[in-house]
């Protein structure tokens, strides 16, 4: 598995898109910090971008890599390796290379700016950790879709739809149900609904460290108690981990029956 990982990783790290992606984050980091001069504001803007972009890029890279390397995967499948290892290697290769682009692309400008002296270092690290989680989650989800869909165009469509669902549609349904049922107690509902979408959960985790922490109190005790505590933080991170682990398990399960 490590060998496959290594080569997938090499391959992706040399791809033009990885450079573009890396350069994008690098430019973003520099522009935000040196034009804005306000680290905490930069973190908020970055959050807005990371929460939308990392899932999208993860999704697209995931399906693209799967379909583009289909023939090569077949060659690998004929080698004496367990097929689960091949796909886990590829999966980790993509996720790691995307994560590296993210962490280096944003990390360099922040270090150049003197982040280590800034109090925002914790918020910023949280941002990178969550961005990495989103990479791993959405590459896993898109790999699942690609594995289940033979047709490349269809697979691509489903993957984009999946991203759109988590990034936009889900929140739309969420908001409409909140407004429609606003005479009922909605604390628990909104808590569960937030937890069930990795993008929403990531957003809340970052906002908790930023501007929402006081505003959240406004929405009732359940929310404040839950997210305000270490237990809440721990639980949220565990749920993010579950969002990685479950698709990976399904991937391995799917692979047992899959024909190439």
């Amino acid at each position: 598995m490590l060998k496959i990982l290594k080569y997938s990783f090499y391959d992706l790290m040399r791809s033009r898109w990885s450079y573009v992606y890396f350069a994008f984050y690098l430019a973003l980091g520099f522009v935000l910090l040196f034009l804005n001069n306000d680290v905490s504001k930069a973190v908020i803007t970055l959050m807005n971008i990371i929460i939308v972009l990392t899932p999208m890029i993860g999704t697209i890279f995931g399906v693209m890599y799967y379909y583009n390397s289909k023939e090569f995967t077949e060659l690998l499948l004929a080698q004496p390796i367990n097929r689960n290892k091949i796909f886990m290697g590829q999966y980790l290769g993509i996720s790691l290379s995307l994560t590296l682009s993210l962490v280096l692309g944003l990390g360099i400008p922040f270090i150049a700016y003197g982040l280590f002296k800034s109090s925002a270092i914790f918020d910023f690290s949280l941002l990178l950790v969550i961005g990495s989680f989103l990479n791993f989650i959405f590459v896993a989800l898109s790999y699942n879709i690609a594995l289940s869909t033979e047709n490349k165009i269809k697979g691509f469509g489903y993957a984009i739809l999946m991203w759109l669902f988590f990034a936009v549609i889900y929140d739309g349904i969420f908001l409409i149900s909140l407004v429609m049922f606003d005479q009922y107690p909605l604390d628990k509902f909104s808590l569960i609904a937030t937890m069930s979408n990795p993008i929403d959960l990531s957003r809340i985790l970052i906002l908790l460290k930023l501007d929402i922490s006081a505003l959240l109190g406004y929405t009732g005790a359940v929310f404040r108690k839950f997210f305000g505590t270490n237990l809440g933080m721990f639980l949220s991170i565990s749920i993010l981990v579950m969002w990685v682990v479950l698709p990976v398990i399904r991937m391995n399960f799917k692979l047992r029956k899959k024909d190439f």
């Binding site: 080569y7 090499y10 391959d11 790290m13 040399r14 791809s15 390397s69 023939e71």
Partner: peptide, 8 residues
């Protein structure tokens, strides 16, 4: 079909 990782 011979199709390999393009960047290796």
């Amino acid at each position: 079909i011979a199709n390999f990782p393009p960047n290796l």
